[in-house]
Design a protein around this nucleic acid. Structure first.
Lengths: 346, 346
DNA sequence: ATAGTCAGCTTAATCGTTTAAGCAAATAGG
DNA sequence: CCTATTTGCTTAAACGATTAAGCTGACTAT
């Protein structure tokens, strides 16, 4: 049977003092609280001898702070989010916080559930990668004055703190890169979503085409449903490639779309980049393994994660004034999948 | 400013009763505690009206249970663990538990830190994918009577609950598969590790060779250090392929080894499976993306995760008797990377 | 009439901490 | 020597819930 954990009371008893003194000493408040140096030393010694470990739950109840951060992401098994989670975990730990991760599956209901569970668990604040239709939840957090930072996705018409990639610019850069390298019929596969980040990626793609002197063709932009990604990705690719004017390059708006798309391109024996060049969002080992390494827009994951944590921690400590809104640039990592187009020799 | 959360006391006040009654009613103990039906209804109505949400922290302090599970894994950004984490998260939620995930980086010190942090946070129990040299930590948990279940890795000479893949058999199956398909010079790249699961994978490989009539050749088994995976994987592959008796097939003992190895094979223009066939542990989208889909040993991740949670939950509820020790089989998913060897035509 | 039972509530302790307030003794200031 | 101040400690409330124990009044049984 495990011996009971030692509490402040145990130490107090052993030292023959009140628990108050023990608390003061172990929290380093001996000066302010005028604790005698000998007794302080004694208390510390006993604490070590009894291997005292403070009870976090009691602390939390008393202080109203749990030193816990809720991280809401779409799905921890998606590498982008897993990497984010890892960074957030590490950074939070450095700041004395523990992270509870919840996967929303891009689903507003699950997201709401998660928020409620974590609010009941008294997390001090949230880092949220918002799901579709979750604006109202975010609004609620604001009203309830629960600290949070939005990560990578934000609502342009809501005043909130956020740390995000500049999705517009990333997409613009990706498309421009393809144009520069000689591609002229550039398609995009995106999600059918009202989320701002997705709109921005699409807008960036469109603007780049326009600025590159290529008229935007409606048929080259395919929007598919997250919930039916596998089937619809195939259909989209068929429609883009099996026509008399097939695309010569393709931008995948997310990692998930890329995975599905690339597998299907393989099945269809479409060669990258000769049949179709690729630029993708997201980043993962998978892109290195493809026979033709995939050009991708590298989001500053480390910085995103770290900044969101430090922003939140700052909010928790100092309480807010102005919301901080931070945009970061994705870096285009050019690989063979988008190499300069060879002039076709007949 | 957010209104204060409503507590039992608020409801009690509003209803003009004591907090005890409120507690009884809201916990469905009105029968045993002989609460009058009208007042019970009133209390319930007020609770709803005030949107009462129980304070989990207070509950935990009182009960000594936090309804929280600590999940210790090597690295959440590794897809195998990310998938495990996802399953565990979902299954735990179904059982009313919240999961706190910590990444140990296969490092005993970090693992110990994590355990301590989570013990102080009063998690009710642990699910642990043990890191190297962490046997003593596990032993400590046992002695402290802290409930835990080992996941996918266990210590054969320690009596603990565990849920694990049968690593020996998986490796045996993988190697046998290669033999069946005509490969004769089968190498393996594994980690240099005393961990039992790694030893088992190696043993399975060796026994399969033996049983297949192939003498085990020491030079075909390469053990590299986890901490130097990138360099040493390259060296190992060079040594296995750039000799007068190069391997014709290769087993990667983990997902991480596979990723590094496959990328290097690509760089070296070694063709899979013509130059070298591949069987790998782990599973990931990456294997589907490779130009030649990779044969892998599919660990029963869902079942592993679910079983470990339900085992732990059972331990938490009913308290233990005999430890449960569960081995599960990995499924060999045969793909092109290990297709029957073509007889070389000269 | 009188004790016993029971329904329906309240009281108060408890979990482990923190911390404002208070008290007694020692010291300082004049 | 007498009053302030300081020093070093204790007391007790509080955080929000749970729950054993007790209290009161009504009803039952004899």
């Amino acid at each position: 049977m495990s011996a009971k954990r030692t509490s402040l009371k145990d130490i107090a008893q052993e030292a023959g003092v009140s628990t108050a003194l023990v608390s003061y000493v172990l929290n380093g408040k001996e000066k302010e609280s005028r604790v005698g140096p000998e007794i302080a030393a004694k208390i510390r010694a006993i604490a070590i001898a009894l291997n005292y470990q403070p009870n976090h739950v009691a602390k939390s109840l008393r202080s109203g702070k749990t030193q816990t951060i809720g991280l809401i992401i779409a799905d921890i098994s998606n590498p982008f989010f897993a990497n984010i989670a890892r960074i957030v975990e590490d950074e939070a730990k450095r700041n004395g916080y523990t992270v509870i991760i919840g996967s929303s599956d891009e689903n507003a209901d699950k997201s709401r559930d998660l928020l409620n569970v974590l609010i009941n668990r008294q997390v001090d604040g949230f880092i949220i990668v918002s799901a579709e239709d979750s604006a109202e939840q975010v609004q609620l957090l604001k009203e309830k004055n629960i600290p949070f930072v939005l990560l990578d996705r934000y609502f342009p018409d809501m005043q909130t703190d956020f740390v995000s990639t500049d999705h517009y610019r990333a997409a613009y850069d990706g498309a421009s890169h393809l144009i520069t390298n000689g591609y002229r019929r550039i398609g995009m596969i995106a999600y059918k979503s009202a989320m701002f980040h997705m709109q921005e990626r699409i807008r960036g793609y469109q603007d780049a085409l326009k600025d590159g002197g290529l008229p935007f063709q409606k048929g080259y932009l395919k929007k598919i449903r997250f919930t039916h990604i596998e089937q619809e990705a195939k259909v989209a690719i068929d429609e883009l490639t099996k026509t008399d004017k097939p695309v010569d390059a393709l931008i995948f708006a997310t990692y998930g779309l890329a995975i599905n798309g690339l597998i299907y391109l393989n099945e269809q024996k479409l060669n990258v980049p000769d049949d179709v060049a690729i630029v993708s969002f997201g980043q993962a080992e998978a892109f290195d393994l493809y026979y033709c390494p995939i050009t991708y827009l590298k989001q500053p994951i480390d910085l995103l994660g770290q900044t969101s944590v430090s922003l939140l921690v700052k909010k928790l400590k100092e309480s807010p004034k102005e919301p901080a809104q931070i945009l970061m640039n994705a870096e285009l990592v050019a690989r063979n999948s988008s190499k300069p187009k060879l002039i076709r020799q007949i």
